[in-house]
Design a protein around this nucleic acid. Structure first.
Lengths: 118, 118
DNA sequence: GTATTACATCGACATACGTGATTCTTATTG
DNA sequence: CAATAAGAATCACGTATGTCGATGTAATAC
């Protein structure tokens, strides 16, 4: 139930009186907010967002050597971004010999996506 | 059309040969990625994400003085976060005398939301 | 064995970020 | 007018971030 808050400013408040009674909004989803903010932060870089975009569009797993030429950054920098995405659980990787294949973890973006479209 | 990329590693590649032909993914939405990353970055802080959450749940406009007691941060810090959200176009504010009322700009999160749920 | 390749890690750097104390601006009260 | 109050702006601080070059690690080729 969305609370309507068209607060009219108290034109005649006494000195020392609070400007308005706080509409107590208890526990605004603290833990979910932490998790979602973590995911959003990881997506808060254009390269990482595009990385996730590429990985999502490819159904299977993508070799790192395919990702490097797509972006104008060095290989270590790309590796750093992939690690960030791994650390927050958006993607995961799989080693096969010399190659590393990355893929998006299903449902990793679900919570944030649901909150955004709510 | 999602391209399946189950690349088998070339077990018998010649020296100096590239590991795999890059599946050229041209122009992976560069400009949209910049905008969406900007929005995601702004949401990449737990307090800002909760701020947006509160503002969205309240249909109307919310006075800053109501927001301050909700979080365990100083007033200047909260003001700083609100400015960040304003700068990227997620929220806007309206002055009425001493009070400032904040509200979420409709459709500000639409692009990111659509991309996430795609 | 050595050489080469793919990728990760490390070190260093400049910049950006989150935070609070203080100050400033503007509006309202007395 | 002076005093008070809400909120923004400024300054300073420690930390995190994005970037690259150099190095490390593991696997394959010769």
């Amino acid at each position: 139930m969305p609370v309507d808050l068209e607060l009219a400013p108290k034109q005649k408040r006494a000195v020392g009186e609070r400007c308005c009674e706080p509409v107590v909004y208890p526990d605004v989803a603290r833990d979910p907010a932490l998790r979602m903010a973590e995911v959003a932060k990881a997506l808060g870089d254009p390269i990482r967002l595009q990385l996730v975009d590429v990985l999502r569009k490819h159904a299977g797993k993508v070799c790192v050597c395919e990702l490097v030429p797509l972006f104008d950054i060095s290989q270590p920098t790309l590796s750093h971004h992939l690690k960030k995405l791994r650390d927050v659980g958006i993607v995961d990787s799989e080693r096969q010999g010399l190659w590393a294949y990355y893929y998006v973890i299903p449902d990793a973006l679900k919570e944030l996506s649901a909150w955004l479209s709510a």
